[in-house]
Amino acid sequence: MNLILISLLTLLIVGALSAIILFFVSKKFEVFEDPRINVVEAALPLANCGACGFPGCRGFANACVKADTLENLICPVGGRPTMEKVAAILGKTAPEVSPLIAVVRCGGTCELRPRSNQYDGVSSCAIAHNLYGGETGCSWGCLGLGDCVVSCKFDAIYINPETLLPEVDEEKCTSCGACVKACPKLIIELRKKGPASHRIFVNCINEDKGAVSKKACSVSCIGCSKCSKECAFDAITIKNNLAYIDSEKCTLCGKCVDVCPTTAIVEINK
């Protein structure tokens, strides 16, 4: 009985002492932190993807609280709704952003771009890209080994087993840009999602001469510049045998799509 009492008392005293010490130490060394940071952080998607340019969502929240305006501070994952929430918390105004989406600019499916050899190294685009141009005659196009799939934190990109090309899930893509960085061929681009996801882009980045690229892939851009002549808004530029559509200027009229002889220009969700 005595033994139990003594042990209970000792534990009690030790516990109380520690609690007092902890209390004073925590008071003494307390670091002031703006409580709004926590609130803002809670409003963010908490994916910690780093696409905003800050180290994780907390870093972004911190920056939002400190900044005078929310200009240049955009959470690409949450987009406008999230920024509006953040703006409401902080009493600032949210910047206008148009939603972006990752676009894979290669249309060379198995049938359209025949394989001439078989890669047998590590299944990594980066390593294959270092070794050689790829399994097809086109050294610009998608290697299909899925570095973008690995890099995506949102399961938004996957390789279609029939075409061996990556496809982006429009619902899931948060335009964080991880796949853009992961692709060694620089095929993936963040583009304006467009009204109701309606968008037009050149589905090729091959800068070889027309004849060469046509031989390797039947849907390659051959740089014929029919589209740029057709475009009434100066949205299409031809550089290095390759057309590029500026999504800022493009009005989605769709004329370029009709004139393209190789169907390299695609229109989605018309």
Binding site: S116, N117, Y119, G121, I127, L131
Partner: peptide
Amino acid sequence: MNKLIISPS
């Protein structure tokens, strides 16, 4: 002939 195999050394 089958497709040639390409791999790093």
